[in-house]
Design a binder for these strands. Structure first.
Lengths: 105, 105
DNA sequence: TATAATCATCGTAAATATACGATAAAGGAA
DNA sequence: TTCCTTTATCGTATATTTACGATGATTATA
């Protein structure tokens, strides 16, 4: 029986809940289209869904789906104004994300 | 015709090639099992495939597949020693990853 | 009120990812 | 050489993701 696992050199504490959140954020960025949307929102701090739809060569429904993933992951916030939805970065969560990346690696 | 796209507040320069590499790294981390493997390698700087197999509750073939994804993404290096493969972090690429996360967000 | 604009959601087809057992490859031990 | 250990790869079943058109919901405008 070789159930031996070598000893750790250090610990890396993160709660299951936060780890799940972090993995979801990585997953959200791990798609070319969503990464492009994030880049667009970084360089265009305040725009509506339609702006992103015009910018990207994909269908409106697909953009909306990707925006939902980014919203659920906590990267962006959507503010409904009239018939449009204005999207901007969720700076608090992004700060948390960046700091976690720094902590772990 | 509403092909209007609002003007940018800044630029965010990254080559297509490097962006593709970065997205692949996010994607690699965006899986619970692979994230767990990365955590294990951070806390156990030098171990072989079998150690990870013993640690995780999944089949050897699956672990090997995940290790390949992490290798291809550039997160880890595998050094064959005898019949075993010793895995360690690819610190150079990880440093690059961390700095890119900082640049973009 | 009727129409247009804007966006999210639904249903679904195609592509990709994930997990496993089986097998192959390669080195060490008997 | 034969057997054992270790790991990667193959083939494949299932699950998830991605993309689209169609539709619904909401608000503004004529």
């Amino acid at each position: 029986m070789s159930e031996n696992i070598p000893e750790a050199c250090c610990t890396l504490d993160i709660s299951d809940e936060k780890q799940e959140k972090l993995v979801a954020m990585f997953k959200a960025l791990g798609n070319p289209t969503r990464f492009e949307i994030m880049k667009f929102l970084v360089t265009h701090p305040s725009c509506i869904t339609g702006d992103i739809v015009n910018y990207l060569p994909i269908a409106q429904a697909t953009v909306s789906q990707h925006l939902k993933v980014l919203r659920d992951a906590g990267f962006i916030k959507g503010i409904i104004t009239g018939t449009a939805t204005q999207y901007c970065l969720h700076t608090e969560n992004i700060d948390w994300f960046r700091s976690k990346v720094g902590d772990i690696f």
